[in-house]
């Protein structure tokens, strides 16, 4: 009696497997094309990050941090941490990771912000998308790493794909919330003066939702960085893979160095995007 009756069993797993097979045979070409396009985009990004001389990056980040965060020693600290990555010998790998994160964030924003806007305008869409976002964030990432692998093959593309799945929800959510929280009276005023919905969106809603959207961008970036490390398991080169190799070979020191580099990247990205977000608020 304590056992759940077998008769009620829903073979969801089988269905998904069948669907996956079908997608692979029927849509394989499509995914190949998309994958190629994404790969080209990523390789360009990576080439750019590797092409820029290290001292230019260090100086640029230093000045950016100083300007955004307001204190000269903030700039020195950020630049110093970047130099530390170089001293560990992980400059190139860090730049590869950064390229992947940048790619993931760009694509997350390109799809996420319009989605957030659409959600803010339709209660129906919001009620549909919200549970999907929950699933995207809570589903263990390995579950969709494998299908991504089957669709796009090994390498950067499935890594990017699964990174986007994980990192896109915050920016969607916060764009949605930001727009919905814009004061009704302000929107009504724009309406009363004859603004159409595009004018209301660009003149009123987006500017006023900007602080919220900036927080979303910050969170999306942090999530992308966290996921890029996991995604290195399916063949994306970068700091994550270094950690993975070190673990496999039980090289504690090496793992620690690579891990520290990831932490440094995280701190720099977080502080800079955070400063950007709070600057918009003023």
């Amino acid at each position: 009696m304590t056992e759940f009756p077998k008769i009620f069993r829903i073979p969801l797993a089988d269905w998904i497997d069948v669907a996956m097979d079908w997608v692979l045979t029927a849509w394989g070409g499509f995914f190949d094309t998309v994958g190629d396009a994404i790969l080209k985009f990523l390789l360009q990004l990576e080439r750019f990050f590797l092409w820029v001389p290290w001292f230019v990056v260090v100086i640029f980040i230093g000045i950016l941090a100083w300007r955004l965060m307001g204190r000269w020693w903030h700039g020195i600290a950020m630049a110093g941490m970047l130099v530390l990555i170089g001293t560990f010998g992980y400059w190139d790998l860090a730049m590869m990771t950064l390229a992947l994160v940048t790619g993931a964030v760009i694509l997350s924003l390109v799809f996420g912000i319009p989605m957030g806007i659409a959600m803010a305008r339709s209660n129906l869409l919001e009620s549909i998308v919200k549970p999907i976002l929950d699933a995207m964030q809570t589903m263990p990432s390995f579950v969709y790493l494998i299908p991504a692998l089957m669709l796009f093959g090994l390498g950067k593309v499935p890594a990017l794909f699964s990174t986007i799945i994980y990192s896109m929800p915050p920016v969607i959510r916060l764009t949605n919330v930001g727009i919905r929280e814009v004061s009704k009276s302000v929107v009504e005023a724009a309406e009363a003066f004859g603004a159409n919905s595009w004018q209301i969106l660009f003149n009123v809603q987006l500017p006023l939702a900007q602080p919220s959207i900036m927080v979303g961008i910050n969170q999306t970036t942090m999530m992308a960085l966290a996921m890029v490390v996991v995604a290195s398991m399916i063949g994306a080169r970068g700091l994550g893979m270094e950690v993975l190799l070190a673990i496999n070979r039980i090289e504690v020191g090496r793992g620690f160095e690579a891990g520290l580099c990831i932490v440094i990247l995280a701190i720099i990205i977080d502080r800079i995007t955070h400063a950007l977000a709070s600057r918009q608020k003023k």
């Binding site: 009276s185 302000v186 009504e188 005023a189 309406e191 009363a192 003066f193 004859g194």
Partner: peptide, 19 residues
């Protein structure tokens, strides 16, 4: 919208200004 743009103007209790 044209009517709202040209014929009527509105003033609100909560001001409704664009901050």
């Amino acid at each position: 919208r044209r009517l709202r743009r040209t014929v009527t103007g509105m003033v609100f209790q909560q001001f409704g200004l664009f901050p």
